[in-house]
Design a binder for these strands. Structure first.
Lengths: 235, 235, 235, 235
DNA sequence: GATGAATGAGACTTCATTCAT
DNA sequence: AATGAATGAAGTCTCATTCAT
């Protein structure tokens, strides 16, 4: 064949790991700025300081690269979390999980958009690392709710999957306009809002066991009775 | 493609309205069959019985055409609804609104996907007819909930916008895998599931027996009264 | 999408037929000079005075274009033949068919090479117009031989397909070095050579029916007998 | 591909001969499985247990490697033949040579294709070992035929080169569809077919009974004799 | 001698959009 | 008003070959 390559001398030789992470960093940058559709392999290559062909040494296709970038990001989000184990109480844990999701959206809106709009829509999303990580993430909520139900802290007549969809669906809905670039949102406020509704309303009351408020009231009633007795005796 | 249609110059000149609606019908058909990303202007033109150039006489761009198609579809979905006014009761109305949203997704998954993924993501979605219609649709839910709150049928400590996001977010979450083409879902089952959780739990008022909180409040009032009496007796 | 085309004014608008034939002419030219592998769509476009995209209006792919160029050439070769019907006699017709094949190779070596090396090797060659035309061409030989056999002019114990393969295989073998660009060959000489061997040797003798030579000999024998009788009677 | 082999620096330094033959074996394997056009240097390297760069220490280019592989294969085919010397009789030897060619095609279709389509088309095929070997192979046929002619077993009016081209051309034509991957062929049947036609017909000498032409000639001679006698009688 | 990361030229293809007719 | 041929920019991807290590 007539492919006679006259190679430039500017070749730098990096360890594989370094190259891969350079490329992924560049890719993440471009995706964040432009979104998947408008991301060009040529631009990623340029920013990573390599030629396009090099990208294909490490990634099978554009889609593959993009998916791996998304996976890595998702992994980071979940791994960087050292708080959860230290948080006590259903309500606080619930709030924290919602807060954490909101936080990752807030910090990396472009990656989040990419996740929701591209990665999740991929026909074989289900065979994706991101899918797995997402399952792990939603499992945390499911577990939390499931245990609360068992413990009698949450109502029995609520399906955990629907709870999960309510929570994550609500998070997404609340953040779409932010993701579209229209204005901002207050993480704490939203997290509280959602957590409160879910905790108080949807899952807070259990007809079978007595609620915390009820306990308090009972104690108040006993105090009142004693007061009455004393009053009656004194009178 | 090499489809060399040697069409005779028998150009038919239709009234503008007819042309526009032909084109929109063709466009809707194509989107429904192929999804937005696989919809070609050339195919729309072909099905509408015109050539590509003609499309640009009536629509500024592909995006413009698509947006108008989405708008029209949304309009139909809302307009075709003659049931709502006849339905009585917060719970039944709530269930119906959820059911109706699920139904339109079920009937036209491709249009729905298009709506959620493309139309809604459009940078100037807010100046869109679809945005307006969507607001109208969510307003129905908001109104319903707002009135229920005022009437004392729903709890006071719930923010209506969050309720709305819970409902629509949950609907979307529940239907994503269907929209991705993975399996199906049962409209009635999902509608019941969501409506029940929202109605029973979140808007935690039990109309048959008094609600827990109401009972508690009543009991607290009695305690307070007794304390007051005691105070009164002492005075 | 961001494809904002600022079109050049140099657009010439030709009737479809003209464009197609321009493109095919350009393609034939390039193929002839470079062979399939080294033929670039960009070069064809340039020579045809259009941009690459235009090629794809008329042809599905490079392969499609190439195939159609080959088909057209083959068609020309066969159609331009007005001689065959006027030629009489098995031997002369055979020689002519061989001559014609050699001639087309001689005139268009690059196209012939392309035909033998690329078109014929195509996995779906059998669904090609060229395949069909080739069958027609070989059918002429087969018919000729078949009729000669029936007429008793050719031997019975020879399979027509093998005859056909002998003839065309021999033509190809004889011309390969020419097609490789090494030297030349004399059409008449080769045509005579092949036709003679085939006619005389392979097909000339039929043990069952009497051959023409035999007939002649018989007549000679009869003459001889008469001469003998006369000689005997006279003596 | 993204196959990131983190091979340890355990470079094995083999004797040059071994390396070369490993590489050639790998190359042959790949060609056989995938055909020339789908053969990648990277795959050859992988199977040979070396890295791409190493191939270029031993071979100038892909073409060079491929050519040497073809040469070696051809050499083997010819060398491995210990039968020919033991076969007696023009006809049997002819059949055997045809059979051997068919056999090598049958056994290694990909190599054969490669030989016919690539090696033989190489601009400097004539300076190739394969060219030399091919000449030696065809020389066997030529010698056989030449001797048969001298011995009077074959007709005199047949050019040996044309005979050779008939034979090899026919073999190729018969096997193309097999080489294209369409169906199979029966080696013995084809070998018999070709050998019979060539032997019986083309080299039209029948050793058992006298050949037709010989018979005719004999009869003509008798006629001539009689005429001569008569003439003699008259004298 | 061996490695293997990097090159780079270019291949084919797509399709919304334009504008001469 | 309608046509539809033509545009052209950009897109993804391939692979033989090189050369710093």
């Amino acid at each position: 064949m007539a492919t006679v390559t006259t190679r430039k001398k500017g070749t730098v030789r990096l360890p594989q790991e370094q190259r891969v992470s350079d490329i992924m960093a560049a890719a993440r940058q471009v995706i964040s700025e432009k979104g998947y559709e408008n991301t060009l392999m040529s631009e990623i290559a340029e920013r990573a300081g390599v030629v396009e062909g090099t990208l294909y040494r490490y990634f099978d296709s554009k889609r593959d690269l993009m998916t791996k970038v998304a996976d890595a990001w998702f992994e980071e989000v979940l791994e960087s979390d050292t708080e959860l184990p230290r948080i006590q109480g259903t309500r606080e844990r619930l709030r924290y999980l919602i807060w954490r999701a909101l936080m990752s959206i807030r910090r990396q809106p472009a990656m989040s958009r990419f996740m929701l709009l591209e990665v999740r829509q991929n026909p074989d999303y289900r065979h994706t690392r991101s899918f797995e990580l997402n399952k792990r993430m939603t499992a945390e909520i499911s577990l939390l709710c499931g245990q609360a139900i068992e413990r009698g802290e949450f109502r029995r007549d609520v399906s955990v999957p629907i709870l999960r969809d309510l929570i994550f669906g609500c998070i997404e809905h609340r953040t779409w306009s932010f993701l579209r670039g229209e204005g901002d949102f207050d993480i704490d406020e939203v997290a509280d809002g959602i957590a409160n509704v879910i905790y108080r309303g949807m899952a807070a009351v259990d007809r079978a066991s007595k609620s915390e408020i009820e306990n308090v009231v009972e104690r108040l009633e006993k105090v009142a009775e004693k007061l009455e007795e004393r009053a009656g005796g004194k009178r």
